[in-house]
Amino acid sequence: MNAVLDDLDAYLQAFGYTLALFVISGLLSLVLGTVLVAMRVGPVAVLRAAATTYVTTVRNTPLVIVFAFFAFFAPIINIRFTWLDVHIGRFDFTELFGAAVASLSLYTCTFVCEALRAGVNAVPLGQAEAARAIGLPFGGVMTNVVLPQAFRAALPPLASVQIALIKNTSVAAVFGVAEAVAQMRTFTNSFASQRLGIFIAFAIGYIVLVEVVSFAAARAERRWRIA
C-alpha cells in the first residue's frame, strides 16, 4: 500500500485515464445504443436487420477481440486514430486512447441497445398508438413518447451496463493505454512484496467510481419515478 501512497500522483493520473475512457465511451455508447434501438424497433426492415446483425455479432465477441481488431486489423484497412492528438494538462489523448474508446463504445452500445429495447417493450403499445394518432411520424413517436419512458424503465439495466463498462476499461491496459490496471502492473512490478496492498488500493479506486455511478442512477430513478 505504501508504494501507492508514496506515488499518489501516478495512482490518480491512472484513474484519470480510466475515468476519461469511461465518460467518453459511456456517452458514445448511450448515443449509439439509442440509434441502434431505434433501428431495431423501427419500421424499415433493412435497418432492423442491420442493427440486429450488429448487436448479435459484437455482443457475442469477447471485448479483447474487439480491442485486437482496432489495434491490429483496423490499421490494415486504413482505420487509424492517428488524427487524435489532444493534450490536456498531464493527460495525453492519442492514437491508442482513440482505439480504446472506439472499442469500448462500439462494444458497450450493443448492451445499451438491448437494455433500451427491454425498456421500449415495457412501454405500453397504446402510448405509441396515441402518439401516431395525433400525427407524429416514427421519429417523433420515439423521441417524444416512447424513448423517454423507455429510458426510465431501462435505468437499472443501463446502470449495470455502464458499471460493466467502468471495469471493462481495464482491458485497454493490454493495448497500451496508461489507465489504472496498467499503472497497477507498473507498481506490482516494482514493489512485488506489496502486491496485496497495491491490489486493494486499485480495487478501492474502482469501487469508488462504481459507487458514484450507482448513486447517480439511484437518484435519477427516484426523481423520474412518479412521472
Partner: peptide, 10 residues
C-alpha cells in the same frame, strides 16, 4: 381510445 393512452410522462 378505450384505455385513454395519455402520455404517462407528460
Amino acid at each position: 381510445f378505450q384505455s385513454f393512452n395519455l402520455f404517462a410522462h407528460k
